[in-house]
């Protein structure tokens, strides 16, 4: 495995295609935003309060605020893209058999999309009670 590109020009020369170059740039730009988003998120929910006091009411009250919905949407989107792309690169570096590597990455993408959709639904559901009822109806076959 070749050494990691050391700067933008090297990354541009080294990348096999524009998509990999775009991901290389994205990891740095999203990382910069995530430093602030994640630090604020961790401070508010885990350091400023005792995390043992977090329960349904805390989460439902918090997620009902429009400001939290917008903030957490950026956090969720950037963190999932940054994290899943990172995991894709790690899988690419460490799983040598092409067939196995392909299927592990397929599973990763499918699971990630599912979790991302669940996250967006959680943030933007009009009412958690209604959403819960809807899911129960769906899963019980009504």
């Amino acid at each position: 495995m070749a050494a990691r590109p050391r700067n933008l020009q090297e990354a541009r020369d080294r990348s096999r295609n524009n998509a990999e170059l775009a991901w290389w740039v994205f990891m740095r730009v999203s990382g910069l935003f995530l430093v602030f988003l994640v630090f604020a998120h961790v401070f508010v929910n885990n350091i400023a309060i005792n995390v043992a006091t977090v329960d349904y009411n805390y989460v439902a009250t918090r997620l009902a605020k429009p400001s939290v919905k917008v903030f957490d949407t950026f956090l969720l989107g950037l963190a999932m893209l940054h994290g899943v792309n990172g995991l894709r690169v790690v899988i690419g570096d460490n799983i040598r058999r092409p067939g196995l590597r392909f299927w592990v990455q397929v599973v990763l993408i499918v699971v990630s999309v599912g979790i991302f959709v669940a996250g967006v639904m959680t943030l933007w559901a009009f009412s958690y009670r209604e959403m819960g009822d809807a899911i129960r109806d769906l899963t019980s076959g009504h």
Binding site: G83, L87, V111, A125, M131, G132, I135
Partner: peptide, 26 residues
């Protein structure tokens, strides 16, 4: 990085259980 993305997925799944309401598994 690997630890954080695995935690992130568990965390988003966990929080998404609020969709089942106060009497759900959350």
């Amino acid at each position: 990085g690997v630890a954080l993305v695995l935690y992130l997925m568990l965390h988003v799944f966990d929080i998404s259980l609020v969709m089942y309401g106060p009497d759900g598994p959350f």
